[in-house]
Design a protein around this nucleic acid. Sequence first.
DNA 1: CTGAAAGCGCTTACAG
DNA 2: CTGAAAGCGCTTACAG
Lengths: 351, 351
Amino acid sequence: MKPTPSKPRAARASASHASGPITLEMVAQAAGVSPSTVSRILNGTAVVSGLKKQAVDDAIARLGFVPNPIARGLAGGRTLSVGVVTQAIDSPFYGAALRGIEDELDPAGYSPLFVSGHWNAATEARCIDVLRSRRVDGIIVLTGRLTDAALKACAKQLPVVVTGRQLKAAGLFSLHFDNVEGGRLATRHLIEMGHQRIAFIAGDADHPDANDRHRGYRLALEEAGLSYDPALVVPGEYHEVSGLLAVDRLLETRQRFTAIFAANDQMACGAMLGLHRRSLRVPEDVSVVGFDDLPTSMYTSPPMSTVHQPAYEMGRLAAAAMLRLLAGKTPDVDVPAPRLIARESSRRLRG
Amino acid sequence: MKPTPSKPRAARASASHASGPITLEMVAQAAGVSPSTVSRILNGTAVVSGLKKQAVDDAIARLGFVPNPIARGLAGGRTLSVGVVTQAIDSPFYGAALRGIEDELDPAGYSPLFVSGHWNAATEARCIDVLRSRRVDGIIVLTGRLTDAALKACAKQLPVVVTGRQLKAAGLFSLHFDNVEGGRLATRHLIEMGHQRIAFIAGDADHPDANDRHRGYRLALEEAGLSYDPALVVPGEYHEVSGLLAVDRLLETRQRFTAIFAANDQMACGAMLGLHRRSLRVPEDVSVVGFDDLPTSMYTSPPMSTVHQPAYEMGRLAAAAMLRLLAGKTPDVDVPAPRLIARESSRRLRG
DNA sequence: CTGAAAGCGCTTACAG
DNA sequence: CTGAAAGCGCTTACAG
């Protein structure tokens, strides 16, 4: 039973002659066991006697063997990769989430495969196809435009984790950040500072987040007994330029306001520029609060007050949930609550 | 020779009974040809008679067959994927490059596989291993810390495209952006506006880009007959905070200066905040010029003057070069020259 | 021009 | 506990 010392040596010599990468078979030879055994040790699939395990581990180390995920995928039906549908790989917001996913998946031996949906349902569907054809083991969808039904259908084939909605289905797990509460927090912060005329720059109307933040704004107003004035609400589409335009519009229609809450930091940033252009000072003349807490928002002039959204953490949590799904367990993750980061773009209204 | 009409039908029926995805074999059956033939048609590997091609194309369309890249990779030795070593998936600068790579690769049927090196040579080396184990067909390296030798060694195994250096080797193509010229442009712009005391916030010293930009700064000074004053040069490390600190330091050491050139936009942004903090106005009191032209730099208050670096374009070009390498051709791409984008953070010195 | 066969590097029932 | 064998879905010499 115990391998003769010469056998491994011989095998090893022949192994190093071979061109190309080390294969599992070479390891088996070197360790004097069958390929099946090596495979089992690699996968922890069965109990193996200590000696053989030792021999195999040695051989693996000695030869520098790295299993070929491609072959693993073909044979075992898994690829140790998880697809990630993001909307734009270069998004200032989702970037952190992607990093979180990467950081969580990596130690588990999984690789993320990022594809971009460009905020388009058809493109997203194509993304799913691409991921499926690459035989990813699971799919993480960061928000997006896919219908709930489409997502559920997808979850019938392989595990799915989705952020930005609340969905329940077999093989499907969703992570939802409380945008209503976030919007409420931002608005209440301004109210507590004495502001009563608070303009709201809305986000994409067909974006659930955006609508939730809007609801939070109304909620806080109501709670404070302040009336909701539609004239103070101006549409935007989540980009800087719409913040800029919104300020122009507010000023042109001669609205009276002492603060602005923008549905995301990018628009808040645009709004700050719009005010700067009109020689209105932030926060002396107008207070501004954003939403997201992008890495850059700490460095606007002045640094922006905003609602922190834990993008990196959400990425990690989504990936952790996927890992659990993949392991056949039920995910149990808690999404952090929104919190307000008061910096210098907002201040108490001077009566 | 011509397939009996009943055969495809029968095969088709059996095909739809099968569970799971359609395989090449099912297509072959449905079309009444051998798997080899289907494979050849798929790959354009050999000339095939019109009729059979027709039958196969029909079968593919009818069954909705999508070849399995995993199996293709195992059998054919290619995966139609290209590895991309980036430094941080969430980098504000590289994000655009990643999108460019994605956009260029997609129509060609290739998928990018992104991994992050975190500005660490050891991590980058591990990235390369991961990519190799996933059998990518080629690797694109966006700058990074790997030695030229390591890159060349890698290129012996599979095609490599690298940005941010000038390297020549078989199977290796490099794309180099002229950072010296960029630095020169930025500085000259300030000089032309009448500035003579121009501070420079340097980037990471072990970053070739950063040193090149520094050289450009000196060059422009020399050309204008202005002396290079080391007291005006303060170190940074490419993040916002170092721009902020740099301004503090400049002010504390009581340097006289009317303009700042920062080696990247992030530091320029930090510098703008630093000046704001000290109640120095940009550009009335101090002009600021950055480098990179990040998407957000257009929306700082005031909008930042900077040197445009075509990150998206570089991504596309790198991917295009890879595609040519993969096709056995020699890449021929022209990197756009740097150009100055004069916005509002710089202005003529009032004499 | 086209098949039959072997093989890519693994995994997983199936038998000991 | 461990092997021998079949198979994952393709591709590619090898023979017609």
